[in-house]
Design a protein around this nucleic acid. Structure first.
Lengths: 373, 373
DNA sequence: CTGAAAGCGCTTACAG
DNA sequence: CTGAAAGCGCTTACAG
């Protein structure tokens, strides 16, 4: 910590923000007309609800009501207030609102990774639902670590989020306590709780793994391998389902390669190489993510292995390249946008105190059969 | 708007947050020991700075100082306060802090798209720098629209962000005014302002395009095409540089296909097909993003076109598959993590009032020559 | 180095 | 339907 920041940092004054001609007239509506060169007292210089109230000749409370529940204010007053709000460019101060109401309009969202395109789609779903309702987001990356997840929850606490959206159902005890003792609701995504009253939105990871095994067996493959990096609980459940399917068919489920590092295309190629060294007669690979699968496909091309005749490849998630590669990659299509959207809906209902008809929402998955099997 | 939310929504009480045994003892440290079953007055029930002050037998101001500038508080008081903070599980109320200090510890970050992996890396850089300094982020997607960007800035205004990180240098007039009139500093990324006093961190998009042209020419290609979707200003500057390079070498720069839609692998294949229809003798394609380039590569495989002998492919950004595909794709490596990190550093300096030695930071780019040319 | 007072800009909880 | 008062939990700006 150096010197405390001054109100108008020197450097900022020196470096003009944007190189522009001054004060264009047509934009006045968006901007406070009252821009004081210096602040009065401790005020920020921003237009306040009191400024609006004075100009509209009503009390601040009426302005507040007019903004939050217009139907509770007389038409004529409302119109007058709306006009003044426009004219002065009033923007409510969220910090003051949060302090007074203890509602922050902020939702904490924690996903394992932002580099995994899967969760970006989920964020879009969340944003489309809760963003429309006026919420903002604190988005955190747990790096697949429950401890980091707990730290993020604790950090976000300072901002008093109204709710949380979390990934997976394996939170730390401390995370639960932190949320419960502050009465903050949370919806958990990408898996389904055994307790039907828990708020969870996802699909059965185990069934997804099982369906992959069934597909390979039906296609006649007999020596399939399982390849996983990023050994999060959901990946391990897929594996469980996959093994179950193989065992039921009397196949050996033990050709596996598991590595607790992020999945990448490059890693897919490397792990595939190891599998071939271990079991040259392997005839199929189930990859826990499509980037691994693409790496396997590239390695097959490099080695002249024919897909799918000599080697079958199945991925997971239907990332953009899976449907485009030559051959296209058979994969599990996961409802990742919907998971975000539906989880957000569930949280919104909870925040509004609306009844929840179904707390555990199974959105399913789909096996997309393509050229690689 | 339905009924106003009640403090403890019914649904939330019915659906227990997480299915757990109750009150584990080892987690007490993280949680307020004082969890009132009902709130007293308007209070939230959270531990406040006054609670800490009483328990430590000092004034609230001393607690505040002990937390924000420990060196200004006597060692023994500080220790006492730290212990109480721990014991009570005190978490400062950010809303109160923001209201009193008009510093929110929040930064607005606006990128064109989150589905483009490019900007995810930039966010990582921003987080690694400003996150360490205790800032949180409001992250917005402008969809490459300056109007949407302005709306986001306006929306974020309610949260009184301390600064903004924006993408590109083509903001709307209204955006500039909004920031300037509220004295909010902004650093702009991915391009360089002509004004050396503007805070910009990026590289010369035009030079990058030019260097691609030079490379193709040196390799002996004579009928190169330019393929772009997502026609943002930076893409158009690359095009400008590319055309300049071709013209200097006496080549025809007019084999172009431009489409104002998001780039995808699939689109790359489609646009390439159109290029071939238009000019079957085309011998190279410069794609404005690596996903287009991968689509072109797949289409070449489909058609039996040899890369690079019959067709050269150059992409942009060095996305994960570019180095892995068969053949690997020649591309421009852009410093996207660094752009975020350095822009964040610059903003941090500005916020702290530290002197800025260089307001315009050119981080350059690198041409990675691979098998596809 | 420490503290008492006032204030940030809203909304709650009452009154009318 | 509208408003005056009080308070949310911090930090600023003074004093000592």
């Amino acid at each position: 910590m150096a010197k405390p920041a001054t109100r108008m940092p020197r450097a900022f004054e020196k470096n003009t923000l944007l190189n522009t001609p001054q004060t264009p007239k047509q934009d006045q509506a968006v901007v406070a007309t009252k821009i004081p060169p210096a602040r009065r007292g401790r005020a920020t210089g921003r237009v306040t609800i009191t400024d609006v109230a004075k100009a509209a000749n009503v009390s601040p409370m009426t302005v507040s009501r007019s903004l939050k529940s217009p139907e509770s204010v007389q038409q004529n007053l409302r119109d007058r207030i709306t006009a003044v709000v426009q004219k002065l460019g009033y923007v409510p101060n969220q910090a003051a609102s949060t302090l007074a109401s203890s509602k922050s309009q902020v939702i904490g969202v924690i996903v394992p990774s932002l580099t995994n395109a899967v969760f970006i789609d989920t964020l879009s779903g969340i944003r489309d639902c809760l963003g429309a309702a006026g919420y903002q987001f604190l988005i955190g990356e747990s790096g697949y670590s429950p401890a980091k997840e707990r730290e993020l929850i604790a950090t976000y606490m300072a901002h008093a989020p109204d709710g949380f959206l979390l990934t997976g159902i394996e939170q730390q005890e401390a995370s639960r306590v932190l949320l419960a003792s502050n009465h903050i609701p949370a919806v958990r995504m990408y898996d389904l709780s055994k307790n039907v009253n828990d708020l969870t939105v996802g699909f059965s990871q185990k069934k997804a793994g099982y369906s992959v095994a069934r597909h390979l067996i039906e296609r006649g493959y007999r020596r399939p391998a399982f390849m996983a990096a990023q050994l999060d609980p959901r990946t391990m459940k897929r594996r469980e389902g996959f093994r179950k399917g193989l065992k039921e068919a009397g196949l050996n489920p033990n050709l596996e390669i598991l590595l607790p590092v992020p999945t990448t295309i490059e890693l897919g190629a490397q792990l595939f190489t190891k599998i071939l060294e271990q079991r040259p007669d392997c005839d199929a690979v189930f990859c826990c993510n499509d980037d691994l699968a693409l790496g396997v496909l590239f390695e097959c091309q490099r080695r002249g292995i024919q897909v799918p005749t000599q080697m079958a490849i199945i991925g997971f998630n239907d990332l953009p390249w899976a449907a485009q590669s030559i051959p296209a990659i058979t994969t599990i299509i996961t409802p990742r946008y919907d998971i975000g959207y539906v989880a957000a809906e569930l949280l919104l209902k909870t925040l509004k105190g609306k009844p929840i008809d179904k707390a555990r929402v199974d959105l399913g998955f789909e096996l997309a059969i393509r050229g690689s099997t």
